[in-house]
């Protein structure tokens, strides 16, 4: 099945990013294709490479980047939501791309299942 994932919440403040990551990982491990992960609203904050995390906690951005490298998953960060929150090309981590909201529409049409993670 083709899965789409929509993330509406920032990292650390809420468990949503963790749930989305664990769901995405379990889905690819079961042999599903993840068409795209779309980061919207405060979800765009998952993409910043400026995160500096204590060593005994998970590094949410690096974890996303590693998952994408391993499984070739596309991450799109909504440009309108990102601009509002100071997330611009210079701070976006490896394997994340800034893109238009139309890519969420495409995902909603294309994916067999769209799963939203939110606060």
């Amino acid at each position: 099945m083709k899965f789409g994932i929509l993330i509406l919440e920032g990292p650390y403040q809420h468990e949503a990013s963790d749930s989305a990551y664990n769901f995405a990982k379990a889905a690819v491990e079961k042999g599903h294709e993840i068409s795209r992960v779309f980061f919207y609203q405060d979800g765009v904050l998952n993409a910043t490479k400026l995160m500096d995390v204590q060593r005994d906690d998970r590094h949410i951005q690096e974890r996303w980047t590693d998952l994408s490298k391993e499984h070739g998953i596309e991450y799109i960060v909504c440009v309108a939501a990102a601009k509002r929150r100071g997330i611009v090309d210079e701070v976006v981590a490896e394997n994340f791309k800034i893109g238009g909201l139309g890519m969420l529409t495409d995902l909603a049409i294309e994916a067999d299942r769209l799963v939203t993670f939110r606060a």
Partner: peptide
């Protein structure tokens, strides 16, 4: 919260496609 506003931006975009 911003859910309603950004949800609406999404609707406007979807309306152009769908």
């Amino acid at each position: 919260s911003i859910y309603s506003f950004e949800g609406l931006e999404n609707v406007v975009m979807m309306a152009a496609y769908e």
